[in-house]
């Protein structure tokens, strides 16, 4: 890649205050996103993976500015080639870029308005962006439905007439209505049945190639993330602990948490024995994270240094970053 990245996130932080008592005094902060840096190049998929509460959803919502970040920069390269910072931008100015960054939601049942037909559901972003003629919108919606593999005649029906997989296609059609450049997909297949999940993953891959889309793909399922992503970022308690090209990450993880996460995934083959070395303990609370490395209380390789000194995200191999004092020195098995 010689071009500048489409999005460059620097030092992104989002703290939610904990308020207590009658006076609503702030007694602490939930450090949901605690210094996240990554870049997204045009046409690639970055998978953001982690367990619940790791901040992956909050980070993705900050990029959409559905949540206002506490600190950090979100540098976006516009169509004209100039770079703007979305993080401090006022809503009025932001409206100009809203069409270019769209979202696909997890719940295909909750994210469509049940009282609007597909034409109105999928066409709403077009209306908002100034396509006033209903006929023009109908033409565009017909094209969009065809694009996601649904019949254009369906546009006069209501969402309840569709199955989960079809609804997710409708959600994707709506996200694509404004011809976005970046699509943020938050757990887009986790609510779907196994036999339908593959169809939606294939559709996302196909659309990316046809429309040169960039995806930020947020999910908890390692197998799904591995399947769809060019690069993967693993998050733990609000921080990226490892970021690498997909194959490098899965064949040679450099952070003990990544390796543990992979080992925890049950292999769909009864001839493979269950992995030993189950990770002990629980994910710490982002309101009260441990000292030093956030992973040290659960880490099988922890040294005294880990409890006092917080490691930085370092580049160990080209494009392969890990937040561990001993990254590269540990013998960690990949998948």
């Amino acid at each position: 890649m010689t071009e500048a990245p489409l999005i460059e996130v620097r030092g992104l932080r989002k703290f939610f205050p904990i308020v207590k008592g009658f006076l609503q005094r702030t007694t602490g902060n939930v450090r949901a996103v605690d210094g996240v840096d990554f870049t997204l190049n045009e046409g690639e998929t970055l998978g953001l993976v982690g367990e619940s509460g790791c901040g992956k959803t909050t980070a993705s919502r900050c990029i959409l500015r559905a949540i206002d970040p506490t600190a950090g920069q979100i540098l976006y390269r516009t169509k004209g080639g100039e770079t703007v910072d979305l993080a401090p931008m006022p809503q009025r100015e932001l409206a100009r870029y809203r069409a270019e960054i769209q979202m696909v939601f997890q719940d295909p049942f909750g994210s469509l308005n049940p009282r609007m037909t597909l034409l109105d559901n999928v066409g709403e972003p077009l209306l908002v962006n100034g396509m006033k003629s209903r006929r023009d919108r109908a033409d565009r919606v017909a094209d969009l439905l065809k694009l996601v593999g649904l019949r254009p005649e369906f546009m006069h029906r209501f969402p309840h007439a569709f199955s989960g997989g079809q609804r997710q296609r409708i959600g994707i059609a709506r996200a694509l209505a404004t011809e976005p450049r970046l699509v943020v997909a938050d757990e887009p297949v986790s609510a779907l049945d196994v036999s339908v999940q593959a169809q939606v993953l294939n559709l996302l891959l196909e659309l990316q190639q046809r429309l040169r889309l960039t995806y930020l793909f947020v999910a908890h399922d390692l197998s799904v993330v591995r399947h769809i992503s060019d690069r993967v970022a693993v998050m733990y308690v609000g921080q990226i602990v490892e970021l690498a090209p997909t194959n490098a990450l899965f064949s040679r993880p450099l952070h003990p948490y990544t390796a543990a996460l992979m080992r925890a995934v049950p292999v769909p083959d009864p001839r493979v024995n269950p992995a030993d070395g189950v990770l002990r303990g629980e994910v710490p609370s982002p309101a009260n994270p441990p000292t030093g490395c956030y992973f040290h209380p659960r880490c099988p390789f922890a040294q005294p240094r880990c409890a006092v000194e917080a490691p930085a995200l370092r580049e160990i191999a080209p494009g392969h970053h890990a937040r561990c004092h001993f990254a590269g020195d540990l013998a960690l098995a990949g998948a």
């Binding site: 998929t45 999940q197 593959a198 390692l222 197998s223 591995r226 399947h227 997909t246 769909p268």
Partner: peptide, 13 residues
């Protein structure tokens, strides 16, 4: 139809 942690990546399932 299930993506696995070992299979091919970014190919249609």
């Amino acid at each position: 139809s299930i993506p696995t942690i070992h299979g091919e990546t970014r190919t249609p399932l």
